[in-house]
Design a protein around this nucleic acid. Structure first.
Lengths: 226, 226
DNA sequence: ACAAAAGTGTTGGTCGTACACCCATGC
DNA sequence: GCATGGGTGTACGACCAACACTTTTGT
């Protein structure tokens, strides 16, 4: 019997770590015996869920590399773990494309188009994470969490295209992101390369925390005359 | 000691029931002793979270009236309940403006602009719910869950304005929603009123389940030539 | 001079808001 | 006929995708 009279359940946290690896949006999976699973585990009594997943990730990847972490959803099907009831809260974690975390044995990046079977309902978390990321790329500055601190438009185009799963044009990508003040030119240019070509301008994100840049698709509030 | 070796925690579910009452977006709160709280409670061992909140709501409001139910977030601060650790998963529930559920003693609708102090972190759930609703009104058909099955544009305008917290014009509301095929005219008109005025056309939502109507704010996929 | 890569200008179309105007009804 | 509320037409601007064109480099 408990203090509050409520039944108690085991609770685990899982992270869908997404990053652009080799020009492809990829997810980090860990081998658990013969099966693949999302990184994560139980929630210690003295930690909130967010801290718990951070702790778990520090084992698998360099946590300082993770540029964005947000809660996705909590799964609660009664028999999702056949041994006993385990609720699971999933997080979306984004790692910049230039990060090179040392992965422990058994951990691997999988392109999101070539996912292996995973245990329990983990594939649902992955799907939800990708959907969330792709939606937010369109109306927030969440790209900052996938890009290196500094980058050329060519690099950004590669990363955003990989994340979205289709090609975007460098021209219009620049225009949109500059107009929304998501990225700003640093003034520097990249050194010259063999083969020639105009040196690319170096950009950076104006803000490295999540910001909504396009709050209203429609039904905007009336313009107050200044 | 548990089967999986994971620690166990109490878990509760809470619902932020939003509805337009008396032309104002309102939230349903229940009096618990002297303090206001969100409807909800523990999660029974044989129910998933969604079923648990549905069960709890059936006590407070007529569940069949709830037109939309979606998970918001899980709060997990270690001391959020000082008695023992209780995780809480919140849901957003929407009730059409024409629903008149019989409320039990102690339950009341509060305009979102005049919220009383609530227990623990319940106000955070309310804020998140309102934010989620307002965002989704802009790019989904979620309005169906606030409107009656059939309605005039005047009614819809009232409901959407109340939900958003600012006035939207009937003219443009119609255009946007019709263009996106969110609402369709039934062909009927309402009967005449004292005082005159042209009889209003009766509309209904084309789809009464959540649909994304404006998937890309920007960075759309390239047009494939037909 | 030529190729390669980056960046700018321009155009055409869609979308959304604002506002003027027309329509149908009661009195 | 006039007030009242409902609906349509039009204009303007913002925004975005597509594509042609110019700029800057290496060879």
């Amino acid at each position: 019997v408990t203090t509050t009279g409520l039944p108690r359940y085991a609770h685990e946290v899982r992270a869908v770590v997404l990053s652009v690896r080799a020009s492809t949006l990829s997810v980090l999976l860990c081998k658990d015996g013969r099966r693949w699973r999302l990184p994560g585990g139980g929630c210690p009594a003295d930690q909130r869920l967010r801290d718990a997943i951070t702790t778990h990730l520090s084992v698998d990847v360099d946590v300082r590399g993770i540029a964005h972490l947000e809660q996705l959803a909590t799964h609660s099907a009664v028999k999702r773990d056949p041994r006993e009831r385990v609720l699971a809260t999933a997080y979306l974690a984004l790692l910049p494309a230039d990060a090179e975390p040392a992965l422990p044995a058994g951990a691997r990046w999988f392109p999101v188009t070539e996912l292996p079977p995973t245990i329990l309902d983990h594939h649902l978390f992955v799907t939800a994470a990708i959907e969330r990321l792709r939606a937010k790329l369109s109306y927030t500055n969440i790209g900052f969490a996938l890009a290196p601190p500094q980058f050329t438009i060519a690099t950004l185009r590669l990363i955003i295209s990989a994340a979205l799963g289709y090609e975007v044009s460098a021209t219009n990508l620049t225009r949109v992101m500059v107009r929304r003040a998501m990225i700003v030119a640093t003034g520097q240019t990249i050194g010259s390369r063999p083969g020639g070509g105009r040196p690319a301008a170096v950009y950076e994100f104006a803000d490295r925390s999540l910001t909504v840049t396009d709050p209203f698709a429609v039904l905007r509030p009336p313009r107050t005359p200044a």
